[in-house]
Design a protein around this nucleic acid. Structure first.
Length: 548
DNA sequence: CGAATAGCTCCTCGAACGCT
DNA sequence: AGCGTTCGAGGAGCTATTCG
């Protein structure tokens, strides 16, 4: 089961480099390891570095060789102590080697084999609405990144965070902390240092990784590359001019580094069907395997101080085999659950709009499960903060006022971002709503906590989710068809679908996977042999960016 | 040769229809 | 009205063909 080997294990090798100059043999691999690993990014720089390293090595050997030659073969062995003569002979030896090296294309072809492509092929930026995994692992990992208060110490002093399923308490997911490239669980004190690095940036980067993972057919077997400057734009950091771009790049790199430290273990049994149950249990493994490559100008020590780009290579962990397995879901052996992420969520500022961001992330994941979007205020606040925050607000009127302010600001921001917020007329009266400036009566906090409201992500996400959900609740016949389609143009032609799909480089099977239909139907649609129902048409338009 | 696509067949489900 | 039958759309599985 765990047979696929982790490519990251390579990195711990090459710790000590034997001094090849003493043996008189130049070993290319030794030279490679002596070079700064950052050099591996740029073949030209590496070749230059290796050539100069090679020449230095040759010079030392050449001097030894020159002395030996003069002593043993020369007619004037006494000149073996004549430094000038030695250098002269050594220089000839060096020259004979370096001329060979200069014209040696074999040297570069060896490097071609040693090195992967210099600049990785990066994934394009995310669109405004993207599919995103919404399985329990996403909920639990979001808690791991944004809820430091939920981390605990077990009896052996290991730091862990446990997320139990609401419906079935036998199902749970646990997270641990490790050092990068390792799966040893770290004890509390060491783990704390990494947990301290967690936060909203980590959570947002995690969402971006997760969104790109949706593009992988078998995520647990594949890797993909992202460019940190794309991520900066997705975070909306490009508009902040107080920080240098290189600083932002390094922040992304260190955030990715923190993501590499999260482990996950799942014990999950879901569904009842003909084949029995889906067992989604994975032993402890990494959430993401991450490698970071920095590119830019080298300083004198061969390091990069101010990178002009950072490339992140991501390999999703084994959890995706059980929770993001399209083929497995078809054969009812694994899960493939996803919702949709509005890209603007990534741009919400965690410092000024923390609650809005927490709500947006939670609701993004939860909207697939809770189709009606109905929540009570207390429920949302409890998932966003620890319970103690609410208890403190109950005891201290200033904290209560503060909490109400934060809640109102969060709701106002979500409304501005196009989220659908409908206040329940009975439990959420006018005077309690964010826009009302009137003085609040006594006991308003309890009123607010028990108030009900409907929150849904911005259009067209609710429509997309609704069309994905198998309509178990009876749809009202006939009328629904006419009613469901009023606002947008939901027609697509067969050629539009085919052209858009090919433009994106998707196969019919891949599009079918996102639509939740068979590849065959996509084929029929593209040939114009099947009419496209409005819901599928709307999904196609969104997924494929089809304009009128 | 393997991945992508298309052809064929069969199943399911809801709407419409007809009979009692 | 209640029930069974028929029909067509939507969809899945298996497999043949095409294409790079």
């Amino acid at each position: 089961m765990l047979e696929d080997t982790n490519p990251n294990n390579k990195r711990s090798k090459n710790k000590s480099v034997p001094d090849s100059t003493n043996s008189g043999i130049i070993n290319l691999s030794n030279l490679v390891t002596k070079a700064d690993p950052n050099l591996l990014l740029d073949k030209k720089q590496l070749v230059t570095a290796l050539r100069s390293d090679f020449s230095d090595g040759i010079k030392k050997i050449a001097i030894h060789a020159a002395i030996k030659i003069i002593k043993e073969t020369s007619e004037q062995p006494e000149r073996a102590s004549d430094e000038a003569y030695i250098e002269e002979v050594a220089a000839k030896i060096v020259e004979s080697f370096t001329t060979v090296l200069k014209n040696n294309t074999e040297f570069e072809s060896i490097l071609d084999n040693v090195l992967s492509e210099a600049v990785p092929v990066v994934q394009p930026q995310l669109k405004t609405i993207v599919p995103i995994p919404s399985s329990a692992v996403m909920f639990s990992s979001m808690e791991a990144y944004t809820r430091k208060d939920l981390w605990q110490k077990d009896t052996e002093g290991i730091a862990y965070l446990q997320h139990r399923a609401k419906g079935n308490p036998n199902n749970y997911i646990e997270h641990y902390i490790s050092n990068p490239g390792d799966i040893t669980m770290l004890p509390w004190n060491e783990a704390q240092q990494i947990i301290d690095k967690f936060g909203f940036t980590t959570a947002k980067l995690h969402l971006i990784f997760a969104a790109h993972t949706m593009n992988q057919e078998k995520p647990w077997q594949s890797t993909f590359d992202l460019k940190a400057s794309d991520i900066i734009q997705e975070f909306g950091w490009d508009k902040n001019h107080k920080k240098l771009k290189s600083e932002k790049l390094l922040e992304i790199a260190s955030t990715a580094f923190a993501l590499d430290c999260l482990l996950v273990k799942t014990v999950w049994v879901e569904g009842r069907n003909k084949k029995g149950e889906i067992i989604g249990s994975v032993p402890i493994g990494r959430m993401w395997n991450i490698q970071i490559k920095v590119s830019g100008q080298f300083n004198l020590e061969g390091k990069i101080d101010n990178p002009d780009e950072v490339y992140i290579t991501i390999q999703p962990g084994l959890w995706t085999q059980d929770f993001l397995n399209r083929a497995g879901a078809k054969s009812r052996e694994a899960l493939y659950q996803f919702g949709y992420l509005a890209q603007q969520v990534l741009k919400i500022d965690p410092y000024h709009d923390e609650l809005a961001l927490r709500l947006a992330i939670y609701l993004t994941l939860d909207s697939r499960v809770r189709l009606d979007g109905k929540y009570r205020v207390i429920e949302l606040l409890e998932t966003a903060f620890s319970k103690t925050v609410i208890d403190q607000a109950r005891l201290d009127f200033r904290k209560a006022y503060d909490l109400k302010q934060r809640w109102d600001n969060a709701i106002i921001l979500l409304l501005e971002l196009g989220w659908l917020v409908v206040f329940d007329p009975e439990t959420y009266p006018e005077w309690l709503r964010p826009e009302c400036k009137d003085k609040k009566p006594k006991g308003y906090l309890e009123k607010l906590l028990s108030a009900k409201l409907t929150i849904k992500p911005p259009a067209p996400i609710p429509e997309l989710i609704a069309s994905k959900a198998k309509p178990k609740a009876k749809k009202e016949p006939l009328r629904s068809k006419a009613k469901a389609t009023p606002p947008q143009n939901t027609c697509v032609t067969s050629s539009q679908v085919r052209e858009a799909r090919i433009a994106k480089g998707w196969t019919q099977a891949k599009l079918a996977g996102f639509l939740g239909v068979s590849q065959k139907l996509v084929s029929l649609i593209e040939r114009g042999e099947r009419t496209v129902n409005p819901e599928i048409a709307a999904q196609i338009r969104t997924l494929m960016d089809i304009q009128d």
